[in-house]
C-alpha cells in the first residue's frame, strides 16, 4: 500500500516500523553504553577485590572471574588481619557518628521547620532571609573557624584525644542544617491550616500537634532527610579527617584513605586486592540502603534540584 503518488509522501508502515526500531536501538544502545561506564568502576572494585596479586598484575586485565578463582581471602585480610586497619571499628565509629548527628539534625530541623511554617513571630522574615544568605557561602569558611572552635573546646587534643571528644567534634557542628529546615518547612506548609484549627478546637497543644499530626503527615520527607543525612556522614571525609587525631577514631573514608596512603610505596599489587575489598565493604552498606530506600533518596535529590 504505497502513497507515493500523493503530493506529501507518507512513510509506509514498514518504514515507520524500521525508523522506530532504529531509534530504539540507538537509544537503548547509547544508554547501555553509558550505564556500562557508570558500572565499570564498581565492577572493577569487586573484581579486583577477589583477585590474587598475580592476577591483578596480569598484562592483559582479567575481566571475568570464575567462582573457583575468586580470592575471598582479601576480605579476611582487609577486615581481620592484625596489621590491617581496623575497618570493623571504623564502621562502628561511622554508624555511631551518623546516628548521633542524624538524630540531632532531625530534632532541630523539625522544631525549626515548625516555627517557620506554623508560628507567627517577630523577625521571622529577616531571620529566614539570613538563613538563605548563609547557604551561598562556601563551607570552607565555616570549617576553618569550626576547627578552631572545637580545638578550643579541647576536643582535638593531639596527644590524648578522648573518644567522646572526637565523637562530639564530629557530630555537634552537623546537628542542624539550613537546607533540611527549608526542605521540611516546605512540606509542613502544604498541610492545610484547617488541620491546625481543628486540633486547636479539640484542645491540642502546639507541641502535641507537631508530633501527632505534622510529623506523621510529613513522614516521607523526614525519612528522606534521615537517609540523606546518614549517607552524608557515611561518606564524610574532610571534617573527620581534620578533627580525629587517632587512627582508632577514623570513620570509614578516612580509614580507607589511610590504608591507601600506607601502601603507596609498597608493591601495590600485593595490597590492592585488600584495598578494593575494604573499599567494597564500605560501599556495600550504602548500596543496600540505596536499593531499599531508592524512592525516598531519589525524591529528595530531585526536589533539591528544583528549588532553584
Amino acid at each position: 500500500m504505497s502513497t507515493q503518488n500523493n503530493e506529501t509522501t507518507y512513510d509506509t508502515r514498514r518504514q515507520i516500523i524500521f525508523k522506530r526500531v532504529m531509534r530504539y536501538t540507538f537509544v537503548y544502545g547509547i544508554l547501555t553504553f553509558f550505564a556500562l561506564l557508570v558500572i565499570i568502576p564498581f565492577y572493577w572494585m569487586i573484581l579486583t577485590s577477589l583477585m590474587t596479586p598475580d592476577k591483578i598484575a596480569s598484562d592483559i586485565p582479567i575481566m571475568f572471574l570464575r567462582f573457583r578463582d575468586m580470592q575471598f581471602g582479601n576480605y579476611y585480610e582487609a577486615m581481620f588481619a592484625p596489621e590491617a586497619p581496623d575497618f570493623l571499628r571504623y564502621m562502628g565509629n561511622t554508624v555511631l557518628v551518623a546516628a548521633i548527628s542524624t538524630v540531632g539534625t532531625i530534632i532541630t530541623t523539625i522544631l525549626s521547620a515548625f516555627a517557620f511554617a506554623r508560628l507567627q513571630f517577630r523577625f521571622k522574615e529577616l531571620f529566614f532571609l539570613l538563613l538563605i544568605a548563609t547557604m551561598m557561602i562556601p563551607g570552607e569558611m565555616f570549617v576553618i573557624t569550626n576547627f578552631i572552635t572545637v580545638s578550643r573546646f579541647g576536643w582535638v587534643e593531639m596527644v590524648d584525644q578522648q573518644y567522646y571528644h572526637a565523637v562530639l567534634a564530629m557530630t555537634l557542628p552537623f546537628m542542624t542544617s539550613i537546607f533540611y529546615i527549608f526542605f521540611l518547612r516546605q512540606t509542613f506548609k502544604q498541610i492545610p491550616n484547617e488541620l491546625y484549627y481543628a486540633a486547636k478546637v479539640d484542645g491540642t497543644k502546639d507541641f502535641q500537634y507537631l508530633w501527632k499530626i505534622m510529623v506523621p503527615i510529613a513522614r516521607p520527607t523526614i525519612i528522606t532527610i534521615l537517609i540523606l543525612n546518614a549517607m552524608g556522614t557515611w561518606n564524610a571525609y574532610i571534617w573527620p579527617n581534620l578533627v580525629s587525631t587517632r587512627p582508632a577514631y577514623n570513620l570509614v573514608s578516612n580509614g580507607l584513605r589511610e590504608f591507601a596512603t600506607a601502601i603507596e610505596f609498597l608493591p601495590q599489587e600485593e595490597y590492592i586486592g585488600q584495598q578494593m575489598a575494604a573499599a567494597f565493604v564500605i560501599t556495600f552498606p550504602i548500596l543496600v540502603v540505596f536499593f531499599l530506600l531508592k524512592k525516598h533518596i531519589m525524591r529528595g535529590v530531585s526536589r533539591s534540584g528544583i528549588k532553584g
Binding site: Y197, V201, D202, T204, I217
Partner: peptide, 20 residues
C-alpha cells in the same frame, strides 16, 4: 480558649488527619 468553649467545628475541606 477554643478548646474550653465546648464547641465542635466542621471545616469546608473537612480537615481530617490524613494519616489516621
Amino acid at each position: 480558649a477554643p478548646e474550653k468553649r465546648g464547641i465542635g467545628l466542621v471545616f469546608q475541606n473537612y480537615a481530617l488527619y490524613p494519616h489516621m
